[in-house]
């Protein structure tokens, strides 16, 4: 089986994990959730194996580059980062309902990568502009940041749901983490994501300076990453300095994640230099 085959299977493993967490939450049974953890673990293992195999396959083809060079490869890496970040949170906070709101993301990322007719899973040689030592650092930093923001988005949704039921009437929300915990965890994820987004923008700027002769050029991808940075910077200041909590932070986090999605996918619809991530590549 080649890497694409393994990665298609991983899609369904992640989907199954998300399903188990949902079942565990809705029917209040701990067993499916516990199984879910192992399924995520298996999925992550397959995901990492797939990435490693793809790396080796690219050497066999004579191209020899890290599998981080197009939309398919970035989605696959994104899914792995998300699953890893989720497992860390589950270990730390021991609440598997978060899995029901987080694990759909790696499933959707993998499903989009594997099933969309617009995305090619062929291993292609690197274009001259991508031949740089900064490629790995830049892409890895960006996607760790994106993964943290995706988790933060999932937590914001949970917060908004939990907050609607202030009197605790809903039996479904009984085992939800307390709003305070969700809020705090959300903040942690945003700080983590912000650090890596900053690192991603910075490594990108240093790379751009060696490839294109300028560290910043207001290319749409650059600009949108900065827009994302502005939104999360607003969130951090509003929370730390003006004491914003709860709903407003959750909305800002959702707006930030919308900007992340546009930076990732939407920008490909606009003209610019970052066309490597575009469809059909």
């Amino acid at each position: 089986m080649n890497s694409s085959g393994i990665l298609s299977v991983v899609t369904f493993v992640y989907g199954f994990a998300a399903f188990l967490y949902l079942v565990s939450w809705i029917f209040k049974k701990p067993e499916p959730g516990r199984l879910g953890t192992w399924v995520v673990f298996a999925g992550l293992l397959g995901n990492v194996t797939g990435i490693a195999m793809r790396w080796m396959e690219s050497y066999k083809l004579g191209y020899g580059h890290a599998p981080l060079s197009n939309l398919y490869e970035s989605l696959v890496f994104f899914a792995a980062t998300l699953a890893a970040v989720y497992l860390v949170i589950e270990k730390k906070y021991g609440n598997r309902i978060i899995g029901a709101f987080t694990m759909p993301f790696p499933f959707l990322a993998m499903a989009y990568a594997s099933l969309s007719p617009n995305i090619s899973d062929r291993i292609q040689p690197l274009l001259p502009a991508l031949k740089s030592n900064w490629l790995i650092a830049h892409v890895v930093a960006c996607f760790i940041g994106y993964a943290a923001f995706a988790v933060s988005f999932g937590l914001s949704i949970m917060y908004l749901i939990k907050d609607k039921d202030a009197e605790g009437k809903s039996r479904l929300l009984e085992r939800f983490p307390k709003t305070g915990v969700l809020d705090e965890l959300n903040h942690q994820m945003v700080m983590f994501g912000f650090l890596f987004l900053s690192a991603g923008i910075i490594t990108g700027a240093v790379w751009a300076n060696s490839a294109w002769g300028r560290y910043w050029g207001w290319d749409p991808k650059e600009t949108w990453s900065l827009i994302t940075w502005f939104i999360y910077a607003t969130l951090l200041h509003a929370r730390l300095m003006r004491g914003w909590h709860g709903r407003r932070i959750a909305y800002l986090s959702a707006a930030g994640f919308a900007a992340v999605l546009f930076t990732y996918f939407g920008v490909n619809l606009l003209p610019g230099l970052h066309s490597y991530g575009a469809m059909g590549q």
């Binding site: 949108w224 502005f230 939104i231 910077a233």
Partner: peptide
């Protein structure tokens, strides 16, 4: 700070 950051974010969209 919050106003300027959000205005920068919103207006930057036009140029893209």
């Amino acid at each position: 700070t919050v106003t300027v950051l959000l205005t920068l974010a919103a207006t930057s969209v036009f140029g893209t």
